[in-house]
Each structure stands twice: as structure tokens, then as C-alpha cells.
Design a protein around this nucleic acid. Structure first.
Lengths: 160, 160
DNA sequence: CTAATAATTTTAATTATTCCAAGTTTTGAC
DNA sequence: GTCAAAACTTGGAATAATTAAAATTATTAG
């Protein structure tokens, strides 16, 4: 399904292409992201990485994530103004953000078609299209179905 | 062109519908956003609002923006982890972000078609689709054309 | 007019992230 | 292998954007 997974050797090579070294910390962070599809934040990565590398620091986690993003092994996902999330799925996809539980899901999306919809002004050159879908995930929808109302107040979805 | 502009009276009514009052500060902030299509940040709104209301505070600007967003008079645009930007154009549109100069542009986009491209898992319900296009705006493209290279280093676009 | 409610202001705190200096590790040249 | 240079890691300080708390002011209902 996901065809973007890289072995350690491939990871090292990809890092090297951008002038980065493959370090134990970077390998742990990358592997951790490959094994978890829940788009963790830097802090969540830190907590998980500490299980393998008890001495790792937050600054190093940020450094690793930066290096992995720069060399194209992972991508950074920014939603709202909450902490950045990180994603090792480099296949073309967009993100669904549940406004109820805040979870983030990968969603397949034919970007060619999306591309065609935007009418760029003359002279503008697009390099990337990022689609974010907001709504309610299946789990939250199932839990909600019984009740029929929505909160009218400035409730503010718990986006985290 | 833009059909979402509201008069003061309409603005007041819209605020009231969500339980907010129309205050001098909110009116100034709203009018300012209507007159500027450049998607200012909270700080930029603050600086401009001060011209009309020298005593206004940053916290009030945030409060005003929050109220205007909540009642649907303006929208908040979050890109990367930079400061939020605000936009009084409530017509359906997506945003183009120039990776060279950081400017943000409204772009017409047929969202029905975009909607059809995303294959949501069963049970998922979408409420909003947000498309962000990144690339180079006409101005920057024109300035760049002479030179043919792109920076290979981790340059990091000046996304402001 | 008065009380109750809401908005604004000022100040302080929080959050996520970046920067920095110092020590450590890795790499490449010899 | 040894040495110097470059890259990395670390802990802590610094920063930017935002939010929260407390006090003051304005508005509205009665």
C-alpha cells in the first residue's frame, strides 16, 4: 500500500544526497515515524524516541526531523497553529483532520484533477498543492449519531 | 467581484447572531480587513488599527479577530507555523502562497470538483476543504527568469 | 439610575520552536 | 592509525505568537 518506505541503507543514501549524515538518533526517529501512522508531534516523537535512546534531547529531535524533512524522507504537516506533525508516508496524499477528536488521517487524492481546478492568475507557477479536509472521522461520527444537536457556542474544536 | 462585503449594519447583525457585540474596535478591525486584500497578520492588523484607535491593545486585536472569525465575517488562514493571517473575503476560494516573497493570494477554485477527488474512508464526513497552492507569483517569476539556477542548500523559502 | 454582563486593557504565562555554546562523534587527508 | 575539519548532540536560554488572568470600563436590562 505505502510504497515510500525506505530501508536503513536507502535512508542513509537519501540523507547523504542532501549532505546529512545518518546518525543513530535520525535512524530511530525515522523508523519510529515509519512504524506509527498517527502523525506525531515533535514532542510525541521525543517521548517515543527516548524509549530507544534515553539520552536524546528535544533539540536533537527537532534537528532530526528537520534533516529528514529536508532530504525528503518525511513530510511536515502544519494544521491550524498547533504543533507541527510529521509523516513518513511520502506517497501522494492529502490529510483529513477530525474536528471532533483532532486525529489526522491520510486520504488518497488524485492531485492531477485537483490541480486542474485552480485558476492561477497569469504568470503564477504552482509547485505544490496541499489539500486539507476537515470533518468528522468514522469513530466520532458513530459516537455522535445518537445526539442531534451541534454546540452553538464558540466551542472550538479540540484540535490536537 | 467580491460579493461577501458587509456594511456596518450587516456586520453588527452577523456579530449579534453569534452573541457578540459590535464595538468600535471590532468595526475598525473588520473595515481594515475589508480594505486590505493582503492577508495581514494579527500584528499587522494591530499596527493599522492603531492609526484609528491609538489606544488599542494587541490582546483586543486578537479578541476582535476571534469574534470576527467565530461569527463568520472573516476567516483565519494558517500556513506553516508562521503567524495566522486574516482574510475578509468570504467567497469560496483557495490560497496561493509564493515561496519566494511569502505573499498570499486568493485564487478562484471550483471546490465541487476538488471535493470529488478525495476518497474518504467509509463513515468519514467532510465539512470543509482547504486547498493551498505553493509556487512562485508572477512578480517573483519575472524577477527570477534571468537566472537559471536554484539554491541546492537547505535554503528554506522565506515564508512570511 | 443601578446591577449585571460583556468587552477592553494591561500584565503575565504558555506553547512550540529556534538559537547558542560546549562537548562529542564522524569523516577524510595524510 | 592520527589529526583536523565538519557535522552532530546536548542542555539551556531566547524568541515569537498566542492565550489567560485580573482589573477597569462600557453597555444593556430592568
Amino acid at each position: 500500500m505505502v510504497n515510500s518506505l525506505r530501508t536503513d541503507a536507502q535512508g542513509r543514501e537519501q540523507l547523504a544526497k542532501s549532505g546529512y549524515r545518518s546518525t543513530p538518533q535520525r535512524r530511530v526517529v525515522y523508523r519510529l515515524l515509519q512504524q506509527n501512522v498517527d502523525h506525531p508531534t515533535a514532542n510525541e516523537v521525543f517521548l517515543r524516541a527516548r524509549q530507544a535512546l534515553p539520552g536524546i534531547s528535544m533539540a536533537t529531535v527537532y534537528n532530526c526531523l528537520e534533516a529528514l524533512v529536508q532530504c525528503g524522507l518525511i513530510r511536515q504537516v502544519n494544521l491550524d497553529r498547533t504543533a507541527s506533525r510529521y509523516c513518513a508516508n511520502m506517497d501522494e496524499h492529502c490529510h483529513f483532520c477530525c474536528e471532533c477528536c483532532g486525529s489526522l488521517f491520510d486520504v488518497h487524492c488524485a492531485s492531477d484533477a485537483v490541480r486542474r481546478q485552480a485558476q492561477l492568475p497569469p504568470g503564477f507557477q504552482a509547485t505544490r498543492y496541499e489539500l486539507v479536509i476537515r470533518g468528522i472521522c468514522a469513530t466520532c461520527a458513530a459516537e455522535r449519531r445518537p445526539q442531534r444537536e451541534q454546540r452553538p457556542e464558540k466551542a472550538g474544536a479540540p484540535v490536537v
